[in-house]
């Protein structure tokens, strides 16, 4: 049975696609689309000899990614303008941060919502500015969802722009307060770096070790591994960008410990090494664990039609993800409310 190994190999070792025939390309493209990785793949394979049809499909995917990049950067710029009068650091997260900082993880990446991190004390002012001057408004949610977000989540209820129809997620930390690890949000903000050092009041991104911590935490401590291959590809690219820097791995180990994310970071490193051949520091990655194989099977659970496979394993990871984020009694209450509403 095929699994997404076809995709991870093509990403990690582009020349290996030279021997691909039509029977490989159609499943590869379907898989890459399903995992939101076609733009990244198209950039990786750029410049290699391909049939006209493959070249055409990959060129279209690159153009699509260019559009995603431009749109994401523009949303960030509009948020910057709306928040220019607020005396608080505004930190871009995830895909927008990668393209804004010119990191390899941003090349060809698909980007959805704009995610920003601001100090908790500034949340109200940020919310007011986005809704007032910025032109964002609440996505219509019911009262339960709204209360749930405000009380239990690590972000404001999502806002959508009236004209541009794009969402912004405003975070005050990188994991819900209900989750077991408690990352140090103040440290994330204090150590963030200005995109343009000559504009200290401009937009910022997390420091390199914190970026890895956030990516690992987003992938392993805050979800059911949906989109996991893409998140892991981010981690691979980030580690290749940062891994050669003086002192990086020691910093990463120290930051992971400070954010109580030592285990997710170590596991993310091992998974990246296993699937993408990422060079990692053995001390930070730690020794392989039995559970790693399950994660790998779950991450690769996709067939050549782009379908999800291994349903039972997916379900197990789904339940686990809710378990991670909420104490069991709260989980029961949350699921009950969701079920009752149908």
């Amino acid at each position: 049975m095929t699994d997404a190994r076809l995709l991870t190999r093509a990403l990690a070792d582009p020349p290996s696609t030279a021997s691909f025939g039509p029977a490989d390309w159609t499943p590869l493209i379907a898989m890459a689309r399903a995992e939101q990785l076609l733009g990244s793949l198209a950039h990786r394979l750029d410049g290699l000899a391909q049939s006209d049809k493959v070249a055409e499909l990959l060129a279209a995917a690159r153009a699509s990614a260019d559009h995603a990049r431009r749109t994401a950067l523009w949303e960030a710029e509009m948020a910057r303008r709306a928040l220019a009068d607020i005396d608080a650091r505004v930190i871009l997260l995830k895909g927008t941060a990668y393209v804004a900082a010119g990191l390899s993880a941003g090349i060809g990446r698909s980007i959805g919502d704009l995610d920003i991190l601001v100090p908790r004390a500034s949340l109200d002012a940020v919310e007011r500015a986005l809704i007032g001057r910025g032109g964002w408004e609440w996505v219509k949610e019911d009262d339960y969802d709204d209360a749930y977000y405000r009380r239990w989540m690590h972000e404001l209820p999502p806002l959508i722009h009236k004209e541009r129809d794009r969402m912004i997620d405003v975070h005050h930390t990188i994991l819900p307060p209900t989750a077991r690890p408690t990352p140090d949000a103040d440290a994330l903000i204090a150590d963030s770096e200005a995109l343009d050092p000559s504009e200290p009041r401009g937009l910022r991104v997390l420091s390199p070790p914190d970026m890895i911590c956030h990516a690992a935490c987003h992938m392993l401590a805050d979800g059911d591994l949906a989109g996991g291959l893409r998140n892991l590809w981010d981690i691979d690219r980030l580690l290749r960008d940062f891994g050669e820097r003086e002192g990086f791995w020691d910093d990463l180990a120290a930051r992971a410990e400070r954010h109580q994310l030592t285990k997710p970071v170590a596991r993310a490193l091992r998974l990246a090494e296993a699937l993408y051949g990422t060079p990692v520091d053995g001390d930070v990655a730690g020794r392989g664990r039995a559970g790693d194989a399950l994660y790998i099977r779950r991450l690769l659970a996709r067939d050549g039609w782009g379908r999800e496979t291994r349903k039972g394993l997916r379900q197990a990871f789904y339940i686990r993800s809710h378990w991670l984020r909420m104490p069991p009694a709260m989980l029961a209450r949350h699921l009950w409310t969701k079920w009752r509403k149908g």
Binding site: T26, I29, S51, K53, L57, R307
Partner: peptide, 12 residues
């Protein structure tokens, strides 16, 4: 019939 498909459709 195309050798390589632009798009995949699934009836499931």
């Amino acid at each position: 019939e195309p050798a390589i498909a632009d798009f995949t459709v699934r009836l499931e």
